[in-house]
Design a protein around this nucleic acid. Structure first.
Lengths: 116, 116
DNA sequence: TCCATAGTTCAACGAATATAGAAGTATGGT
DNA sequence: ACCATACTTCTATATTCGTTGAACTATGGA
């Protein structure tokens, strides 16, 4: 991942509505949601939502797919993973004992693969 | 972490110079770097750099400390960790078998706490 | 074909952003 | 006290961003 891609992804997420949309899609899993569902849940005007979904799409953070009259949007988990990895690249360069960043918080047991 | 905090942090990182600064600080570890060092390495004008460092500081992503005439900036690893966690909260809600996001790639062994 | 539904595109506007130049503040050395 | 160094603050400006209202496209049903 190049820095320009990371900046685009971060800029796409750096807005309250877009971040809410993306998190909603992340929580919804690979099946995604229709634009209408997203608009209803977040209380956004359809054209405003299109604007934000476009930004997420151009940043490669979501995919779209038509289903009848609906457009189904879904989070791109691979892109998300790339971004998180990029942010922590070369962390503490050479002093790994300091860096605990990518350890994703509450891992309560090996069986409970929490996603958070 | 509230969504507003996440948006602020993401917005702070969503700019090529700021992302470069932050990654440089992340790679430099807890000792940080002086503003002058950062400016030299990244080729930024001092006032421009101050502007960007301010944004990172207000987003709680870096700390500052005076050392003689120099200002020493360092990454806040705790804030970074919080942000990454927030992005993946409730991931795939209820279907953890799908979600591999927060698994930070190469974890070669439990002893080698790689930072990437 | 006619119409409703589901989204998208376009134009306009106020607000926020990034940068540069100039001036200002604080520390250290002589 | 004087000066240089190291940053910061102030002012101005061009650019980008987010929202709205209106018009437009595409699909599905009667």
């Amino acid at each position: 991942m190049e820095i320009i891609d990371a900046v685009n992804a971060l800029a796409a997420l750096a807005q309250n509505h877009r971040l809410a949309v993306f998190r909603l899609l992340v929580a919804s899993g690979p099946d995604g949601l229709s634009a209408g569902d997203i608009a209803n849940r977040l209380g956004l005007a359809p054209n405003t939502l299109t604007f934000h979904l476009d930004r997420l799409r151009h940043a490669a953070l979501v995919t779209v797919q038509r289903d009848g009259r609906s457009m189904i949007y879904a989070a791109r988990f691979d892109a998300m993973k790339d971004l998180l990895g990029f942010l922590t690249d070369d962390c503490c360069g050479g002093r790994p004992e300091i860096c605990e960043i990518t350890r994703p918080a509450r891992r309560r047991s090996r069986k409970a693969k929490t996603c958070g």
